[in-house]
Design a protein around this nucleic acid. Sequence first.
DNA 1: CGCGGTGTTGAAAATTGTCAATAATTGTGG
DNA 2: CCACAATTATTGACAATTTTCAACACCGCG
Lengths: 238, 238
Amino acid sequence: MKPENIKVACSNCNLRELCMPVGLAPGELQRLDDLVATRRKIKRRETLFRNGEPFTSLYAIRTGVFKTRVTSEDGRDQVTGFQMAGEIIGLDGIVNDQHTCDAVALEDSEVCVMPFERIEELSREVTALQRHVHQIMSREIVREHGVMLLLGSMRAEERLAAFLLNLVQRLHARGFSRSELVLRMTREEIGSYLGLKLETVSRTMSKFAADGMVEVEQRNVRILDPEALRRIVNPPGC
Amino acid sequence: MKPENIKVACSNCNLRELCMPVGLAPGELQRLDDLVATRRKIKRRETLFRNGEPFTSLYAIRTGVFKTRVTSEDGRDQVTGFQMAGEIIGLDGIVNDQHTCDAVALEDSEVCVMPFERIEELSREVTALQRHVHQIMSREIVREHGVMLLLGSMRAEERLAAFLLNLVQRLHARGFSRSELVLRMTREEIGSYLGLKLETVSRTMSKFAADGMVEVEQRNVRILDPEALRRIVNPPGC
DNA sequence: CGCGGTGTTGAAAATTGTCAATAATTGTGG
DNA sequence: CCACAATTATTGACAATTTTCAACACCGCG
């Protein structure tokens, strides 16, 4: 699998607002193009990087969806997130110069490879980029706080409702429907992310369907009553 | 409570290895002193910052212990971490220029206030500092992955065992005993962090004591059999 | 010395997990 | 293109874990 060597340009990427939403002077914008060394295509089920591999680059997702997962010493694993177009993965590798999780493509995907050395170099000169890198990392920390809240204090229904709402919101921000979504991950992967067994995910999904809140047909989900889902996440008495 | 205006120096701080372990040229080391604008003392139960407050600075803990917690819209809260000397808090505020969690002192504490603008400025010039800031943020992301694994896939005993081992390990790195520790947090706070009710924490602690793995006397804990605790975290069959 | 916050323990209830059977879907190779 | 195997999803019955509710003990502090 040799990575393909296609030169690309951030300056006219249509994901710019998602991936590098910095207010840049025209000259600076062109310098950003230097960040992306290559693009790389990852087939479904293949990994972009794996736990233990040396860290060299951050990756901006151009197309497709990934999951990231950590594995404990005794082999249990935990999905730590699902990432889609415009999102940045690989931040875990910075601290020890090697990755501490796996990034697996859930469908055929393509990423921009941004060598971290180059990012650091350029962000010393382009203040807006420096700020942006800090924001991306901080955003990830805040996102994970939210996951900890979900895992630590929510019940199965609340977790799944929050998950569906989050997913459809992010898809909508990318131009997809506000109410229909196609799950790119299995029930087991959803369960791993939410700290539930796949059977619990399946049952809870069925319950939502029985209550008329969603329509579920395998991986196709239609949100019929988003308000009801929101009420589940944030119970009424408050 | 006006913050006290004491000028301080990183260059001769005995926490340097914990808080700013960068290999710096002598000249650069002195410039680091400019990072710390002031120190600030926080009394037990008081907050260093709160959700919603404008973000201005990162804080390096000099003495004491903090907890950070997030609160959901409906008022549930989740402890996201316990931080001690040498650790950096406030990273959550970078992304939206305001804090998204509370930092509460669990005992009388003191922090170094490092205005983030100054950090960004200086890390444009001092490469080692830039790298270090990135590492601190990445380390926090990796730590949170571990918490997600704990919350998502471990049972009560495993969570508490992992918690105790982590705590005593960090204390030992700071020169305290390898086996004795004083919990600065309540059972409820431990429970919130571990996604358990306080009764479950108490019961599990009692069980560990009954099994001879620890000696518990209120907040004083002595680890009698660290290997047994490790076996609980990482079950044998692997 | 008593009070409020904290911690422990028991019994019952609720939630989620486990195991198992079956169905539906997808991928693969003939 | 079809058929078969493998994966994924659903559902039921039961078990395990954790929570809830309640009572009581302990501790530190005014």
